[in-house]
Structures are given as structure tokens and as C-alpha cells.
Nucleic acid binder design. Structure first.
Lengths: 126, 126
DNA sequence: TTGTTACTACGAAATACTTCGTATATATTT
DNA sequence: AAATATATACGAAGTATTTCGTAGTAACAA
């Protein structure tokens, strides 16, 4: 699967959050963050369609675009690349660096410990 | 601080791992992974110098380049951007997704628990 | 029907990044 | 001294990505 570019990712985030959308809607949403022309967004969506990152329903005059890749898959894909690139392929290495450098609330800590519990149980039952 | 591009990051990794180096050395090292011309590496290092990503000692005919940003800072910078971009700014969110999607050995799990311990102690003592 | 609005198509300029060729200088070898 | 090897400088081509202008078309309002 192709890795989306920065701009494509911005658009995917809109589609993930709001579901299948028109160019107009995507463009309006992007413009809440930064100025970007309507035809720019249109062109980008057309390119994304060529690449297979989206599909569109062109039954009506106004096309509706839908993401073909899920948010979770894409995140994992980016994490993988990232870890390979900067952490010698060790996800744990990255996790530890992240934990050490961010403020984590007690509640988050507890959540984390619970996740760890779950993973250990899962693995022991194999 | 400027965010290095993909190619610049490749070079930084060589400089971090081996310390201040000549263009020749950097280029040879890069060529262990993929073919890349000598003048390409030279040009890249010159650009990095303009950007302030490296400094060079030009006393001798053969210049020696040194990274001005540390590996740790750069990693953190990438993690931050990444988390802001794809995980609504929640580092913990990203950590959990990573843990859920990678094989983690028991030893790594133990290391992780220890880190968590340390962080909790650190925070309680504030 | 005629003008206005909202849409898609698409070429191409603008920007960013990567790559390399050529010129030139300096050291080293024959 | 001439040939060879090894540097740096730098313009510019090549490639990827982003941006937008203009043209054409369909819907809708006056």
C-alpha cells in the first residue's frame, strides 16, 4: 500500500473523522486550519483517487469521496516506518523514549499498566 | 529548529553513529545501503551546513562535518510532530497503539515495567 | 432565456528535494 | 614536470509534491 504524502494525510484525517465527504466539505474543513484553494483540494482528491487512497461515488453531479485505507492501518504503517528508521526497528525502544519525555497523568499510567496486563495475559495463553 | 529531510536524516544517522566525518566516509557508509554519488553526498552536506544542521572544520583540504543536533533531540522532535499529527497530541495514545501491534518479548515487558516504576517514583517525589 | 452559481477536468506553474556533471584547485605519484 | 588522484564549489537537471488558473458543464434563479 502506498504511503500518503503530508497533504494527502490531512485529507484522509477529514475523511476518517467525518466519513465520506464532498470536495466542498473537505475543503471547508481544511480551511479551518489553513487557507487552501478549492481546486487544490479537488486536484488532490483526484490524485488520491488515481492512487487508490480514495474511491468516489460519481453518480450525482457532486462527487462523494471515501477513504479506502483505515486510520488504524495507516497509523501502524507510519509507526512501523518510523521505528525502522529511527529506532533500529525496536518499537519498545521508541515507546520508552516517548514515555520518558512526556508528562503522563496518573490515570494514563493506570491505563497503560492495564494494557500491559492484557498483553501479558494474551501472550501467556498462547 | 529545522526538521531534516529524509536524505538529511540518513546522513545525520551516520554522523551520530560515527562522529565527525569526511564526505568520503559518509558517502562510503551510505553506499553500504544504496548507491549514491559522491557529489550528491557532498552537496547534501553543503546544504545541511547552510541550514545549520551541521558545521564543518575546513582547516584542512578535506573538510570534517559534525552534526549540530543530537540524536535524542531529533527523535523527540519527530515523535512530537508525529503524535500531534496522528494521535491528537496524546503520546500515550500512540504508545498504546504501538504496544498493541508489536511482538514484545517478556524481557522487554519487564524493562518497560521498570521504566514505568521509575517514572511513577520520579513524579511522586515532585 | 439569460445570468449566476457550483461543480469537475486538467494543464501547468510553483516549490521542495534529490541527484549529478563539470570546473577548478591541490596534493601525490611517476 | 606531467599525469593522476582526490578534494570542493556550484549550476542545473530530474523528480515529487503542492497549488492554482482557466475552461467547460450542469443546475438554478431572475
Amino acid at each position: 500500500m502506498l504511503k500518503p504524502t503530508e497533504s494527502e494525510l490531512e485529507i484522509l484525517k477529514v475523511l476518517w473523522q467525518h466519513g465520506p465527504s464532498t470536495v466542498r466539505f473537505v475543503n471547508d474543513t481544511l480551511n479551518e486550519q489553513r487557507e487552501i484553494g478549492y481546486t487544490t483540494t479537488l486536484k488532490l482528491l483526484q490524485i488520491m483517487n488515481e492512487k487508490g487512497l480514495t474511491v468516489r461515488d460519481a453518480d450525482q453531479k457532486t462527487h462523494i469521496y471515501r477513504a479506502t485505507i483505515t486510520e488504524a492501518d495507516t497509523k501502524n504503517r507510519f509507526i512501523d516506518d518510523f521505528v525502522k528508521n529511527l529506532f533500529h526497528g525496536s518499537a519498545m525502544n521508541m515507546v520508552m523514549q516517548t514515555l520518558g519525555n512526556n508528562k503522563i497523568s496518573q490515570k494514563e499510567m493506570d491505563d497503560l499498566k492495564q494494557i500491559i496486563q492484557k498483553i501479558e495475559n494474551r501472550d501467556h495463553n498462547k
